[in-house]
Design a protein around this nucleic acid. Structure first.
Length: 444
RNA sequence: GCCGCCAUCGUCUAGGGGACUAGGACGCCGCCCUCUCACGGCGGAAACCGGGGUUCGAAUCCCCGUGGCGGUACCA
């Protein structure tokens, strides 16, 4: 199999596009075939070299490698011109100056469901001749057969007046020349397929196999955008999601097999993925589930791996001991700093409500007792076990509930009521720093 | 408007005529664990869009309706 992924290089690799890339990759890898990249860059306005590079970078980050490409439509313009002239010579296509308004007028006269047929002229855009009334069947690996009648189809413009090729024309030529066997793309291309089928016919070649993926929407059913948290792979990366988790989540967004499992390794996915089992319904992107899944993947990393990932993400070093005690509390790399930043930057989050609740008269009294117990511990005895014993003794002595002692300490150290385990936090912070922070809290 | 695609819990899905008191996962709720938040464990609420057929029997097949989405560019 020769499968091709054709991103539209607008800079960001949209999540829907990432899923299409992933499915293409599954099919290519699963069949021992080849993944070819084809860049849809005939619209030079937005397809800058920088944008193309950003897409490739996102693909590499997701670890979706391609064997060939990128094929650039712009670079293939002479080939497109050659085929165009051929179709013109064979009278399979014709030039016309008819505009969109002319097409509208034509329909007003002949009926809205009648496709536009133009009159050949010496100049103008090139339109492909569409058979008068014939049934064009799109065989789709996911949807089965869809029939389009050519009467409804306008003669499509395949090249501008200046001779440059348009998408529906270029894509067929490029895919054929690249010997593509499988075209897997978004459902928004389904209606374009009959036009491409006509181009293949004019070329006198067999079309590839098609599979049209259902579209992806945001949680509200609308088009996915930044408003929904993230719309591109680049944004997911910035928010600290792992490539493996994204691959797993995206694989399941529109596909599932009889096993119905949720956490599946990429290797297993490649083996199991079956394009014919892809869902026909549009799916909604649910960040909640991705977060959960990402948390599962995060917790499967070794301490060293997670530390390295977090140090790269935060740009800080020396995170290991803190990572060790907070790893089960984060779902993305971005969750780490808000939770554990206080270890390094001090209790900067001034949570007034927390101070009010836990550092009132009772709290300060408990904190004072806790300070005494902690200060009694030797420098080299400031361990989780010893701190545990010492603090629980304070709880006993005060005939208090554990949290009545622990929470004031937590607020003094972290500035908030949420942190890793209090004994672990104290041990990692060390005796001196812990006492310093407690004194600061008591003094304020 | 015209052409086309789609329709199972809030979300992602399993299901392909009897195995369905419709299964799993996220989320939600409750309980357990517990120093907070989590993690983990246990339990719960929660769906076949509507109407007609076909059939002994329909979530599953057909038709209509409704709804959602896509295409309808000298964009891709």
């Amino acid at each position: 199999m020769r499968v091709r992924f054709a991103p539209s290089p607008t800079g960001a690799l949209h999540i829907g596009g990432a899923r299409t890339a992933l499915y293409n990759w599954f099919v290519a890898r699963g069949s021992g075939g080849t993944l070819v990249l084809r860049i849809e860059d005939t619209d030079r306005e937005r397809s800058t070299p920088e944008n193309v590079e950003q897409i490739l970078d996102a693909l590499r980050w997701l670890e979706l490698d391609y064997d060939e490409g990128p094929i650039s439509q712009v670079e293939r313009s002479s080939r497109h011109a050659e085929v165009l002239q051929q179709l013109l010579d064979q009278d399979l296509a014709y030039r016309t100056t008819a505009t969109a308004e002319d097409v509208k007028a034509y329909k007003a006269q002949h009926g809205a469901d009648k496709g536009f047929r133009g009159r050949p002229e010496a100049e103008g855009a090139v339109r492909l001749r569409v058979p008068e009334d014939e049934e064009l069947v799109v065989h789709d690996l996911i949807r089965g057969d869809t029939t389009f009648r050519t009467v409804h189809l306008d003669d499509p413009v395949i090249a501008r007046a200046d001779g440059t090729a348009l998408y529906n024309f270029a894509v067929a030529i490029d895919d054929h020349d690249a010997r593509i066997t499988h075209v897997i793309r978004g459902e928004d291309h389904l209606s374009n397929t009959p036009k491409q089928l006509l181009v293949y016919r004019a070329l006198g070649v067999d079309p590839p196999a098609f599979a049209h993926l259902p579209l992806l929407h945001g949680p509200d059913g609308k088009k996915l955008s930044k408003r929904h948290g993230a719309a591109s792979v680049q944004e997911l990366r910035a928010e600290g999601y792992l490539p493996a988790a994204i691959r797993n989540y995206l694989a399941l967004l529109g596909w599932g097999d009889a096993d119905d499992e949720t956490i599946i390794t990429t290797d297993e996915l490649v083996k199991r993925f079956d394009i014919t089992r892809v869902s026909k319904n549009p799916a909604r992107f649910d960040v909640q589930k991705l977060r959960w899944l990402n948390g599962r993947y995060l917790r499967e990393l070794s301490l060293d791996e997670l530390t390295a990932a977090l140090e790269e993400h935060t740009g800080r070093t020396g995170l290991r001991s803190v990572v060790e005690i907070s790893c089960e509390k984060i779902q993305t790399l971005a969750d780490f700093w808000p939770l554990a930043g206080f270890f390094f930057d001090g209790p900067t989050t001034t949570d007034a409500k927390a101070r009010e609740q836990w550092l009132g008269d009772d709290g300060r009294a408990a904190l004072g007792d806790a300070r005494g117990a902690l200060a009694a511990l030797p420098e080299d005895g400031f361990t989780v076990e010893e701190i545990d014993v010492a603090l629980r003794a304070v709880v006993q002595a005060r005939e208090a509930k554990p949290k009545q002692v622990f929470q004031p300490v937590r607020v003094a150290l972290a500035g908030t009521t949420v942190s890793p385990g209090i004994f672990e936090t104290l041990a990692v912070l060390g005796r001196d720093e812990s006492l310093r922070r407690i004194d600061a809290a008591l003094g304020g």
